[in-house]
């Protein structure tokens, strides 16, 4: 399979990429690792007029930290997120999940920013970043930046808050503290498959029970979703409240039916996986 024709430009900086994007107009796309975009172009689901290659901008690949946050350059590859000691120490949920994406070859090319900007509701990282209350830094012309919280970022099926002349440049993740437990469970039938349903859970432990919980769902609607009813039911609860809370996981979701699973089965999986993920995040009795 061969993509339709397109113009190709290599950007050597974010500014350069923005001016190339402006020049080619709204049918141009950014190319980072290309591991979501190129398959779609081969299938001709995507036919951009031009690709602006930001995959060679070394300044977009970094992992840094300050007191409360880890800051990850959008061009950082899944392989590097998975193996970063800083992320492992400050936010192990994120490094763990990066290691579940695709396979080693995919992780050598795919980037965290590419995965987020693509906005596929079956992707793992958007769900985890939503659960983590991450923030996304968008850079526009002249270097102007705005920061969008994950809760306002995912707008629809493959739709995000990124404007046509903006680039996602950084992902900021609050560090998890010593009292935080976490889990990401991904249900799929074969190695390297997308999640049929996935669940991210972060539990603030308090005296053996749950202080508060954050729970987010993969592939249960057009965007990653927070399971708000579950979170409310778990706030200040004990372990034995988990099954009843997990049963609320399908509330507010709109899963699709496809060749992998029907909507009802997805709702069932959300219930079961939320229960398991919260148990795992809470840790041993």
């Amino acid at each position: 399979m061969i993509p339709a024709e397109f113009n190709y430009e290599v950007a050597d900086s974010v500014d350069h990429a923005l001016s190339l994007l402006a020049g080619y107009g709204p049918e141009a796309k950014l190319l980072a690792g290309g591991h979501s975009l190129i398959p779609m172009m081969k299938l001709r689901f995507a036919r951009p007029s031009a690709l602006v290659d930001i995959g060679r901008i070394a300044a977009l690949s970094y992992v840094e930290q300050d007191d409360g946050h880890i800051r990850i350059g959008a061009g950082t590859r899944h392989h590097d997120v998975h193996h970063s000691p800083l992320i492992e120490a400050g936010c192990p949920l994120l490094s763990f999940t990066a290691g579940l994406i695709g396979d080693p070859q995919v992780r050598h090319k795919g980037t965290i920013g590419g995965s987020v900007a693509h906005g596929d509701p079956a992707s793992d990282l958007p769900t985890v970043l939503l659960a983590l209350d991450a923030e996304f830094v968008l850079t526009g012309s002249g270097g102007a930046t705005r920061v969008v919280p994950a809760s306002d970022f995912f707008k629809g099926f493959f739709e995000t808050a990124i404007g046509p002349e903006e680039i996602l440049t950084e992902i900021r993740v609050p560090k998890l503290g010593a009292s935080s437990g976490w889990s990401y469970l991904k249900f799929s039938r074969r190695a390297q498959d997308w999640a049929i349903v996935g669940v991210a859970a972060i539990v603030e432990r308090s005296n053996g029970g749950i202080g508060s919980a954050r729970v987010a769902l993969t592939n249960m609607g057009a965007t990653p979703l927070r399971a708000s009813s579950v979170e409310q039911a778990l706030a200040g609860a004990e372990r034995d409240a988990i099954p009843a809370a997990a049963a609320m996981a399908p509330e507010g979701t709109s899963p699709t039916s496809d060749t992998n699973a029907g909507a009802n089965y997805r709702r069932h999986l959300a219930d079961v996986l939320v229960g398991r993920a919260v148990e795992e995040a809470l840790g041993g009795p």
Binding site: V10, L31, G34, H35, P39, D53, K109
Partner: peptide, 10 residues
């Protein structure tokens, strides 16, 4: 890497 999912220009 998977060479079916990379452009030669990359």
């Amino acid at each position: 890497v998977k060479s079916c999912t990379l452009l030669a220009v990359q």
